[in-house]
Design a protein around this nucleic acid. Structure first.
Lengths: 181, 181
DNA sequence: ATGCCGCGCGACAAAATGCCGCAGGCATTT
DNA sequence: AAATGCCTGCGGCATTTTGTCGCGCGGCAT
């Protein structure tokens, strides 16, 4: 990976956490990228239309439109854009969608700059190791909820009804989703 | 979803659990698919080469080659094959990989036949007109526990450890009725 | 403006879970 | 035969997670 040798590559960083953007943006610039920052999908779209970036890093959980629509928009603007989705609320359901919409990789926070840069270069092979431990129940539940949530267009009330669970309880489960194993 | 009306669609089911194959295979045949079963990647390849299936369900964790290479092979044989990856050891990393290699969907076990069939029809950005009652979380949990329990020879203590849950809690969960619906 | 919905959140009781500990069963080891 | 190790079922009890109710807010169509 020696992109930085030539003219610096344009990179669009979209995350609503200002501090996070600053830190990650600085790290990326040090690696030779020309970083542009946006804090929402609405803010990012015009920037991307003005000059489609070669690389993009997108957070999914943002106020306003969900990050997934931005993934789609960027990919349609320029299919060669390398898009990495980065989220603190990672789930298989959104990962699958993101990839289908054209994302290059999907990473869970926390991820450092090196991992992200490496992700841009990712090409699939069949050699990803499988986990040895069976899925944890909490995890299974989380994934299932996310899937149903997506199927209901992220409508919490509808999802709660579909799952026959209290809206309040669903809210609470969604609020605290760390728990990666 | 009225595939069954025409000639039945060919479907290749690849999983090393014979019982699982039987049950799921039967359920799929009842829905109008012509099911062929293989228990390993090595077994599945020649079958697929002989006659590329229209649909495929692939487990990731199998003796021999990992299921991901089969995903790739099937997709290269015929890009129109609808492939669903189904695994008890789900992870975001393998999900991303599977989709990039050409899988249509990625589901975590347990998943019932309806969910799988629905997955075949699922389109990336599409509308979701069919509202299927999603499986209840309790059922999901119950089936998952049963699977892991069997993998550990019905050893409650070992299962509790594998699931990272208290033995006492597992006991209590097992004590109360299955609660199917 | 007036419902109808969805959302976020506080409060409190009810239920589930985590965490002890004990006794019995059943192999394997000493 | 006794000791050891592991599993199982179960009784309490502290803690955590739920179910439930209710409030106010904001969008949206009528």
């Amino acid at each position: 990976m020696t992109i930085s040798r030539e003219e610096s590559a344009s990179l669009l960083l979209v995350d609503d956490d200002a501090t996070f953007c600053k830190v990650l943006g600085a790290a990326l610039e040090k690696r030779g990228y020309a970083v542009t920052i946006a804090h929402s999908v609405e803010q990012a779209i015009p920037l991307a239309e003005a000059s489609p970036p070669e690389f993009a890093i997108i957070d999914l959980k943002m106020g306003g439109s969900p990050g997934l629509v931005l993934v789609k928009a960027l990919h349609e603007l320029d299919p060669n854009t390398r898009i990495v989705v980065l989220t603190g609320y990672a789930s298989i359901a959104t990962a699958v969608e993101a990839i289908k919409l054209g994302a290059t990789q999907y990473l869970a926070k926390p991820a450092n700059a090196d991992e992200i840069v490496a992700a841009f270069a990712h090409v699939p092979d069949g050699n990803v190791p499988l986990k040895t431990q069976p899925t944890q129940i909490d995890n299974l539940e989380w994934e299932h909820i996310q899937r149903v949530l997506r199927e209901h267009d992220d409508n919490i009330s509808a999802t709660a009804r579909a799952l026959n669970m209290h809206r309040r309880t669903l809210q609470r489960k969604l609020a605290k989703p760390p728990l990666r194993n």
